[in-house]
């Protein structure tokens, strides 16, 4: 068996995992499934593309950092894009979700997120048309690294970026005060208030992190595949599958769930053919949930 699926799977899995962190955070802290998360990914990607354009317009063409296909403008634009997407998520909460949340019915918030998803996606198609865009049209040569595996420098860089971000978020959740407050709110919101935690601040922070990571996931897809208004929406199913597989609320779980889905999809393509891609991922999801309904790292409701 060709081992190339490992690289493909890890890359897809990273994109899915980064998206799943945002979904799992909003679910565990705000208690609703945010179906507009995929569209935040797409918005973040287009925003980053715009920032790259602005930086190029300001500073002229910048040579890529050899051997990568992109230079510092993309990294700077990504940082700005993360801020933008975090801000967009905050805005969405402010004008839409927050009011509906106050009324209590979670299903209404979930439906509203569907609506937000469609509106965001249509707006992107209106602004940028549905034809694909690219960060770079340069073609990268994949280098063999043994065991029949080939990988491009971009892919290596993005895998490292994912690992760094996931570690950073994990440390933030376990070591920092805001992380402890987020965990406290997700475990018992009433007690969190009694303890003196400003829940509204924790909610804002959750949106910022979720939005920022959605942007990174989108940009990864943009760099490795292409940029389309539907790119995020198409990821929604695997992203939710990863969050559920890992156990809702668990950040390591979301990442591991993403990697499992990504790897099994890639393996399925190789073994059974491309048309089985999604089916195999969901068979695995269901199999895990049969044995462990709360997901790999999940904890039961208390």
């Amino acid at each position: 068996m060709n081992m190339q699926f490992l690289v493909d799977g890890l890359l897809t899995g990273s994109m899915i995992g980064l998206g799943a962190i945002g979904v799992t955070l909003t679910y565990s802290i705000l208690r609703f499934s945010n179906f507009s998360h995929g569209d935040l990914m797409a918005w973040g990607t287009y925003a980053t593309l715009m920032f790259v354009g602005a930086i190029t317009a300001l500073f002229g063409k910048v040579a890529p950092i050899a051997p990568l296909s992109f230079g510092w403008p993309l990294l700077l634009a990504l940082a700005l894009g993360m801020l933008f997407t975090g801000g967009l998520a905050l805005l969405l909460d402010k004008i839409l979700f927050q009011r509906l949340r106050a009324k209590g019915q979670m299903i209404i918030v979930v439906m509203a997120s569907f609506g937000a998803s469609m509106a965001l996606r249509s707006l992107l198609e209106f602004l940028f048309t549905s034809s694909p865009a690219y960060f770079s049209r340069a073609i990268q040569i994949a280098k063999p690294i043994g065991f029949g595996i080939r990988i491009t420098p971009d892919q290596i860089a993005l895998l490292l970026l994912t690992a760094a971000l996931v570690t950073a978020v994990h440390l933030l959740m376990t070591r920092s005060q805001i992380g402890r407050e987020m965990r406290a709110v997700s475990q018992n919101i009433g007690l969190a208030r009694v303890v003196g935690i400003d829940v509204a601040r924790v909610v804002r922070f959750t949106w910022l992190i979720g939005g920022a990571l959605a942007c990174v996931a989108g940009v990864m897809i943009g760099v490795l595949v292409q940029i389309r208004p539907l790119m995020g929406f198409d990821m929604l199913l695997p992203v939710f599958a990863a969050a559920i597989l890992g156990g809702i609320g668990s950040i390591p779980g979301a990442v591991l769930g993403g990697l499992i889905i990504g790897l099994s999809e890639a393996a399925a393509v190789q073994i059974f053919g491309a048309e089985w891609r999604a089916a195999i991922a969901f068979v695995i999801l269901m199999a895990v949930l049969f044995v462990r309904p709360i997901g790999l790292f999940g904890v039961g409701e208390r």
Binding site: Q177, R180, E181, R183, A184, Q187, N188, G190, L191, V194, V195, G196, I197, V299, R302
Partner: peptide, 21 residues
């Protein structure tokens, strides 16, 4: 509170730290 007065999944020390905010 009478019931559910600790954060069950957080360590004892994190329970204290989070209150120390």
């Amino acid at each position: 509170p009478q019931t559910e007065n600790v954060f069950p999944l957080m360590s004892v020390e994190d329970n204290l730290k989070v209150a120390g905010g």
